[in-house]
Design a protein around this nucleic acid. Sequence first.
DNA 1: TTGTATAGTTAAGCGCTATTAACTAATTAG
DNA 2: CTAATTAGTTAATAGCGCTTAACTATACAA
Lengths: 169, 169
Amino acid sequence: MTISEEFSQVLHDWSETLMRRSMHDFIQFSKDSGLSMPQIRTLFHLSHDGKCGVSEIGELLGVTNPAASQMIDRLVIDGYIERSEDPADRRAKRLKLTGKGRAIVTESIEIRSRWMEKLTESLTLKEQKSIISALLILTKTAQDLEPDENHPSIKFKHEILAETISGSE
Amino acid sequence: MTISEEFSQVLHDWSETLMRRSMHDFIQFSKDSGLSMPQIRTLFHLSHDGKCGVSEIGELLGVTNPAASQMIDRLVIDGYIERSEDPADRRAKRLKLTGKGRAIVTESIEIRSRWMEKLTESLTLKEQKSIISALLILTKTAQDLEPDENHPSIKFKHEILAETISGSE
DNA sequence: TTGTATAGTTAAGCGCTATTAACTAATTAG
DNA sequence: CTAATTAGTTAATAGCGCTTAACTATACAA
């Protein structure tokens, strides 16, 4: 087995472990919250990128504008997002998370963080140190492979988290 | 920032990147194949655990038997699985992947592997070597944190839910 | 101004998943 | 041999997401 073959295999195993766990939390969260998959993706997109229009959500999900519009209707009715007219272009709408919307995104992030903290605690400091650089390389390389997607710093989520906790909106 | 805090942060960022990519591939696969989420999970479960009954699928998905039965109907009609009487207990049915079913599971796994191979190619051999041990530690530690998956207990059916997504191997 | 493109909504209709209730049929307990 | 349990299906119903077609309203360009 070459190094590259071994690497692919090890990466695959890890990815499978991580996915299994994350998907579990994700599906459970979907059932508990009553939010559908497209709705959760929409909330995360808004949390990640801030305000945006209806078409952008449609593109994100790979569906038509009417589909996006109707799904957004339900998010608005349920109080997770706010839909207002864009003053710069009155055809367009500006979608924005409400406090309730930010709170549920935060909750979902925290559920997945809990597992990661448990994982962190199970590793010695020495192990943690040795793994950090590996993950940094992996993350950067993976992100460089995606030219389309902007990956604005993930720290943004933590800012939102802090904001929600401090109780603004 | 302590080592542990940095570690959690880095792990979170990597998990985010991996999830984003895997979810995208996963949803795309669902659209391309015309298979719904529960159907894909059912196929993966059958691929992983071999034959099983209708109720087991219901438990796996966390839905009622009628829901499972009807969803399985469509998988049978579309030729992905085979539903036969269990000779040992003629009330029960034995569900089994057909060749077409096995093929589509394999295809889904390969789609996700493709990205990992691209990632592998983007790394030098030296980088690959240094990352392998990190991933091995992570994978083993993460798996040790999970409750026993080989002997699923009904008490933990929510935990089992996630097995689904994972590929069988 | 007129014509076209853009942003989004509304309406009709389809398919899948989900529910509960009512059912068949086979197994098992008393 | 009943009586209860277990495995699964059928039927009626509802919600969500999706599509296309038709629509409103704004923006922009000839």
